[in-house]
């Protein structure tokens, strides 16, 4: 019962964070809803084992990021099973981000298509910094890296995007 109460408190505090972060990765309302639900089921299952080594927020960030990356991998695997063209992923075809304003939706779709092509770590650093607005130090903790490594990931990601766009 104590756990249920704690779980509801966590849900109230972090559900928006999890949903918006999922949207940044998946760019699709339905997939993000599903991912948010799955992330909270994982949190519920693992809550007893959470040992306070990192902060709760960092822990939730990690679960969400790992889950979203798994969803993308699984979707791409399924897509490639039927359509064997390389460099064409399912997730770039399904843009439906409710946070993107209508007038800039087309540009946004183009940007996200290029973000989706970035390597996982660069993508994560860029999303956390630019969309979520998390300080670099916190990103380093979430990604289990030092700040310089995060800086380098961000520089490389921005450079690649600049070349493509």
């Amino acid at each position: 019962m104590k756990n249920e109460k704690q779980f509801l408190e966590i849900y109230n505090e972090f559900s928006q964070l999890v949903y918006n972060l999922s949207l940044s990765y998946l760019q699709n309302i339905e997939d993000s809803k599903e991912a948010t639900q799955d992330v909270f089921v994982k949190i519920h299952t693992k809550l007893e084992g959470f040992n306070n080594k990192s902060s709760l927020k960092t822990w939730i960030y990690r679960i969400t990021i790992n889950h979203c990356l798994d969803v993308i991998k699984s979707k791409n695997r399924k897509y490639r099973l039927f359509f064997t063209r390389e460099n064409e992923d399912y997730d770039s075809k399904d843009f439906n981000h409710p946070g993107a304003k209508l007038e800039s939706k087309e540009e946004m779709e183009k940007i996200f298509r290029e973000i989706n092509k970035l390597p996982e770590k660069q993508k994560t650093a860029l999303i956390l910094k630019t969309i979520e607005g998390i300080p670099q130090k916190e990103i380093a903790t979430v990604m289990k890296m030092n700040e310089k490594a995060v800086e380098s990931l961000l520089t490389r990601a921005r450079k690649k995007l600049k070349e493509k766009l």
Partner: peptide
């Protein structure tokens, strides 16, 4: 891209999610 990405608005969570 930075200008566009900064403009992404935070979305509120759908009500039915907790039930799910």
């Amino acid at each position: 891209e930075q200008d566009y990405l900064n403009k992404i608005e935070k979305v509120s969570i759908p009500d039915s999610l907790l039930e799910g």
